[in-house]
Design a protein around this nucleic acid. Structure first.
Lengths: 157, 157
DNA sequence: CAAATAATGATGTATATGCATCATTATGAC
DNA sequence: GTCATAATGATGCATATACATCATTATTTG
């Protein structure tokens, strides 16, 4: 018998929706990011900082002061998104954005209030992170963070 | 000589900002999510779908139709956030939200247009995913996705 | 069945995130 | 020094994400 061409069936290169849910790196990381962010946001809430703001403060606190483009690299964040995110933090006095002396790019500096907020949030973060390590196991959380770091490096830009 | 109490030095339980950048699960997953999302969004752009919309279509396509709360669970997304996200997709004709017959919750259904959009985006997604697997290596990407899945399960709710 | 409790949907508010774009400024090439 | 190129900052637009809250509707208990 002759084989009928099945124009209505999926082409051989069609994508199985279930496979996307199971193996898509983007879907997986976004889903985890939502769940984890909710947990950390709740843990940090008493400090008045969001998880994103806490991370930014950590980066700026680590170096005291840095050019905005450098911070962009550290956070793997879009240029304009970072500027937007820094706005409310500047308004709230957590950071200061000072025009680069001479001809350099603007510097982001942590303010005393920002440092104070970071220090106050520290124990809250530590508790959340410890809880995460306990849930995942130290081996698994280490492996996970290492994998995320590699992925960030490979995909940023 | 007597040891002076150093009230101005950091308390023993203070948090090192550099440590936060290196080990914080939340910071790590958010940063990776940004970088990876940018890449997948760019890859899917020709289809008119965002990475988030593609993931939602995959979930709905996998089951044809499902109650909104079930979809919320699949995506590990906040209840109200999901409703908001579905709005433009409904407006664009990608999904239909039909009131549950009788007394059940609303069902999300994929429309023919939605299925068409998903199929068209399929090859774009496959290319992005293959590229990701190539960059990370099949072993590492598998391990990473597995870890993200576990974390999602542990933190969701 | 009625009351208490839980689930759901809708909105207001706020941060988060990125693309496209425009204007300005810095940097390099010549 | 001038011109081309690149980097930076600012905006408009759009999606993404979540909390708090209110109203409505199920569900469960008594």
């Amino acid at each position: 018998m002759t084989r009928k061409p099945s124009y209505s069936s999926p082409p051989v290169d069609s994508v199985d929706p279930k496979a996307v849910l199971e193996v898509c790196l983007c879907h997986g990381v976004r889903r985890a990011s939502r769940a984890i962010t909710r947990t950390f946001d709740a843990a940090l809430a008493p400090s008045g900082l969001t998880s994103g703001q806490f991370g930014i403060l950590a980066a700026v606190a680590a170096l005291q002061s840095m050019p905005v483009p450098v911070l962009r690299g550290v956070l793997a964040m879009d240029r304009t998104s970072l500027n937007r995110t820094l706005k409310p933090m500047e308004v709230n006095g957590l950071v200061a954005i000072v025009p680069g002396a001479g001809r350099r790019a603007s510097q982001v500096e942590i303010t005393p209030e920002g440092l104070q907020a970071f220090r106050e949030a520290g124990p809250l973060w530590r508790a959340a992170q410890s809880d995460a390590a306990e849930r995942l196991g130290t081996a698994r959380i280490g492996q996970l963070i290492a994998g995320l770091d590699v992925a960030t490096g490979l995909f940023d830009q």
